[in-house]
Structure formats: C-alpha cells, structure tokens
Computed example of a mutant assay.
Amino acid sequence: MTKTFSFQCADCGHSEPFTALVDACPACGGTWLDPVYDLQSTATIWKKGLSRRGCSMWRYWELLPVRDQRHVVTLGEGWTPLIHLQNLGGMLGHKHIYLKDERQGPTASFKDRQASLAVSVLKEANINEMVVASTGNVAISYSAYCARSGIKLWAFLDSNVPHEKMREVTLYGTEVIKVSSTYDNTKQVAVRFARHRNLFLDKGIRSIAAREAMKTLAFEIAEQVGVSRGKRWAAPDWYVQAVSGGMGPVGVWRGFKDLFDMGFIDKIPKLAIIQTAGCAPMVNSFEKGLEVAEVVQRPASVINVLSTGNPGPAYPYLRNLVLQNGG
C-alpha cells in the first residue's frame, strides 16, 4: 500500500510534495519541516477500519511519513499498556492518573518508536549507513532497528553512558565511539564525523521522522483513554513527561492536534514539562520568561538520559504551546 503527502516549512510556509528525504527547505533553508497529510481521508479510513488493525504503532501509518508500507521496519513497537495508577491517584487526590508504560517496547524505551520510523524512512531512501549521537536509549533502539534492516550504524555516546548500555549497543554490531565530554559536545563530534565521511546524520528533533513517531503515543493514549470512558476516542486533561531534549511532548502535542482536527477528540491536553534539577534549561528559562533557553554548560543530573544542556528549537516550540494552550 502506498500514499502521498507533502511537507511544509515552519519558517517560510513553503510547501511541496514529499518525494525524497530532505534536510532543509528548498526555498529558505529552514530545518523545521512538517508533513502535511490528508486528514479528512484518514478520518474516514480510521472510522471504518482502524479497530480491526494490528496493535502496533503502524496501525496509524496514514499519518506517518513513509510512502510505501513495504519499507516499514518493525519489531512490534507501540501499543504499550496504559496503566491506571489507582493507589497513587488516591494518595494525590486524583482518581484518573494513568501511566503509559514504554518499558514494554522491544528495547524498553519509547525511542523504539523513533527508531522504527526513522530507519523505515532511511530504508525507503536507500540509505545504508548512518550516524547518531546518544545518551544511551536512542543508540540502543537505533542499533536494534539498523541491525534488523541491514543499515550500518555509528553511535557516538558521551562519557556518562553506563557501561551496560554501551555493551548493549555493541551487541547489535554498531560501531561505538565514546566521547569524553558532555552530550552536547558529543553531538558536535558526531556532526563533524558524519560530514567528513559524507554519511547521513540523525538530527534528532529536527528530523521529520523523529518528531512524527512520537505522535503515535498520542494516538494510542486517546484510544486507550476512550475505552476507559466507554468511547472510541478521548483526550486526557494533561500530558506529563520528564524530558531531556523535549522531542516527546513536541510530537505528542502534534498527535493530539491531528486527532482534534479530524474531529476525534474535543480538546488538546495541556502539557506539563518536567526536568531534573541538575539539568533544567527549559524549566529554568520558562520561569525567567526567556524566549530562548539558557544553556546548561555542565549538566549535573544523575539521570544521564535527561542531561541535554542545550534543548535547541524544542524550548521555544514548547514554550509557545504552553503559553497558547495552557500548561
């Protein structure tokens, strides 16, 4: 099965059909590109047959940036449990608190969604070698999916990544480069390496596939909350996530926005962005009223996967969403 869709530049509004993998807007050079799908047709298709599809993130493929289903690389990711936290809710005085348990993915991380879609897009583009920088989870997920698809992966990991995670990455056959510095510096080393070798570099939140993969969390949550309320779809009041670079809530918000525009839900949840005290550039900058995040030069968090000192474009994007929609 195949489909067509377009992309639009967030900076200048230029739009054109998506026919090949692109890094930047051909009109202005902007690097934030959003896919544009036929939401009306998708709504009709989902109303008729979504409930009969398999339980993975690929049940939502009409709103994911892969043109041909033959290129999908999957390990059964998605459709993780939504657990009603009754005891915690009782202690906090809120009866309807739910946990989306992403530990149940193929490599025990929500990054499996990102890896599945990103590697599928690369396969469709006939790319057979790539570079990624990671604090651990992305490298593990990408290693699994690259091994599945036959793509050679170079993973640059910062010095705080636990030995156990580095070992897991190597088990998939990934070339691992340990950088004795922070994650932000590690990303710069990966950029220079990819440029020198003329290899594809995963750009994280600036990647269409990475952001779009996170939409599937919203789609699943809306279906699962709907079932709990005796409906087909329903949105929660809030979406809460601990973040590092912020890609998760950026994609999740877009997923809820798609559902709202299709008429499946009657509201978009407010966002609650949580950061660890030792590395909280977004939280601190928001409290100061800053439009651009102050970079944390020396992250001090013991939670390595939440130690992105420079959130880049995620902060102004999320800040605007919170100011406009509440959070």
Rank of each mutant, 00 (worst) to 15 (best):
K3G: 08
F156Y: 09
D237H: 13
I303G: 03
M262S: 06
L306D: 08
K203W: 13
A277G: 08
R113G: 08
K231H: 07
R70V: 13
G251H: 08
Y60M: 01
I45E: 15
L117C: 04
I177L: 11
V191Y: 14
R319V: 09
G289S: 09
F200H: 14
A242F: 10
Q297L: 13
N160K: 12
S149Y: 04
L88G: 05
A20S: 15
G204K: 06
A108S: 15
V250P: 07
Y37M: 12
G90K: 07
R229V: 04
H196L: 14
I208F: 01
L39I: 06
S207F: 02
V66I: 05
E124D: 02
Y145K: 00
L50C: 00
L75H: 07
E62Q: 14
K270L: 07
T308W: 08
T42N: 00
V176H: 01
F18G: 04
G76R: 01
H14Y: 02
A272S: 15
S41W: 09
G245T: 07
Q114D: 13
S6V: 03
I221L: 06
S143T: 08
S181M: 04
G246M: 05
T216A: 05
R113P: 09
P162D: 06
L271V: 01
N284K: 12
I177V: 12
F5E: 02
N137L: 07
P17G: 00
R70E: 13
F264W: 09
R103T: 12
I205N: 10
L318W: 02
G90S: 10
W32H: 13
D38G: 05
E77P: 04
G150Y: 07
Y239K: 10
D158H: 14
H163D: 15
E164D: 12
L122W: 09
V121R: 11
S228G: 12
I151V: 10
E220S: 03
L306R: 11
A209W: 03
G173P: 00
H71A: 11
A277M: 12
P299I: 01
I83G: 04
D112Q: 00
E212P: 09
K231M: 09
E164P: 06
I127H: 05
A108H: 15
Y142I: 07
R232K: 13
L199R: 03
L21S: 06
